[in-house]
């Protein structure tokens, strides 16, 4: 499974992912973002968890703009419809609701993926399309070189994938252009990936140049890690692992990484203090220079090894 979506930005995308939530994915993403912006490294954080975006809470940013994201949805004219049922047959998502006897036909928005198959199916010309808003992108400016792009889906849509793609595209262009450049060359885009391993997760990591997997030293963490690794390997994505709450739990994750030869990028020790600060919405790395330094070093290493953005596939 590989992706070949057209790229026209010069950014280097690092996805921060973990199978299940709560292992510290957002913790790593927000602290990495802060550490890079402190170094004046141009960076954009794209919050791809469109069903529950949280990243912006950590940064008092200035809202720059808000962009609606729309999707096409069919409108069926009951006066023209012959109730032949072809559209229903063509719809793979069972989104067409039809009662021929009472002459009722409509599209159920919460099931519709906006694929256009029904439009193609209808010979009577009863179907047209309209744009509906499925969510929005909110762009925040944190410093001159650091921005956040937040994707936020409205409830009642079946899949946030369109929104995620839009957010990642926007993030590639969101930073202040340098004179003579349409975009800032080689700036880093961090993708805070959605939880789980479904379509939203796959879509996000498929658009990344490198993936940081965050896990914790427990049997749950190890099982989730293995599952994510399996998925990334079929996509041929380079990745490394950050072990959160190191020192608690057991050695399962370390043994697994050793055995398979996967890189352990960083171990974040467990301290009650960290949990306290995080719960309070504080950025731990602000008062912990060592952590900040380690994050910057980790970023440097990834960029040195895996390229400087603009590369043709």
């Amino acid at each position: 499974m590989t992706t070949h979506a057209a790229r026209n930005d010069l950014a280097f995308r690092i996805a921060i992912a973990s199978g299940k939530g709560g292992t510290g994915k957002t913790f790593v993403a927000t602290n990495l973002f802060y550490s890079l912006l402190k170094q004046n490294i141009p960076v954009t954080l794209a919050d791809c968890d469109a069903e529950g975006p949280n990243d912006a809470i950590f940064f008092p940013g200035r809202p720059v703009r808000s962009l609606p994201v729309t999707r096409r949805t069919p409108v069926i004219d009951e006066r023209i419809c012959t109730f032949c049922g072809k559209c229903r047959q063509f719809c793979s998502f069972h989104a067409i609701f039809m009662l021929p006897v009472s002459r009722v036909i409509r599209c159920m928005d919460e099931l519709c993926h906006g694929c256009g198959a029904c439009l193609y199916a209808c010979d009577a010309g009863a179907i047209s399309e309209k744009e509906v808003q499925m969510g929005e992108l909110n762009v925040f400016s944190v410093t001159r070189t650091a921005r956040i792009v937040e994707s936020r889906m409205q409830p009642g849509f079946p899949s946030p994938v369109t929104l995620i793609k839009a957010a990642i595209r926007e993030a590639g262009h969101a930073n202040t252009p340098l004179p003579g450049h349409s975009v800032l060359p080689g700036h880093t885009v961090l993708l805070d990936a959605p939880p789980g391993i479904g379509c939203p997760f796959v879509q996000t990591v498929s658009l990344a140049d490198y993936v940081i997997l965050v896990t914790e030293p427990t049997p749950f963490g190890l099982s989730d890690l293995k599952q994510s690794v399996e998925c990334l390997q079929t996509m041929e994505k380079p990745f490394g692992v950050v072990l959160n709450r190191a020192g608690t739990g057991n050695d399962g994750v370390n043994e697994y990484l050793d055995k398979e030869g996967f890189p352990l990028l960083m171990e974040i020790p467990f301290e009650r203090e960290i949990a306290f600060n995080y719960a309070r919405g504080r950025l731990v790395c602000k008062s912990w220079p060592g952590f900040q330094h380690a994050l910057v070093k980790m970023h440097e290493l990834i960029r040195r090894t895996y390229g400087n953005g603009h590369h043709q596939r």
Binding site: M1, A5, A6, Y120, S159, V161, V202, Q203
Partner: peptide, 23 residues
């Protein structure tokens, strides 16, 4: 997408609507 002039499917992007197989 086109891969070396040959039409190919990107699995990560495919939503499974089936329109391509219809057309």
């Amino acid at each position: 997408y086109l891969s070396d002039g040959q039409v190919a499917i990107d699995e990560a992007n495919c939503e499974g609507c089936g329109l391509c197989s219809r057309v």
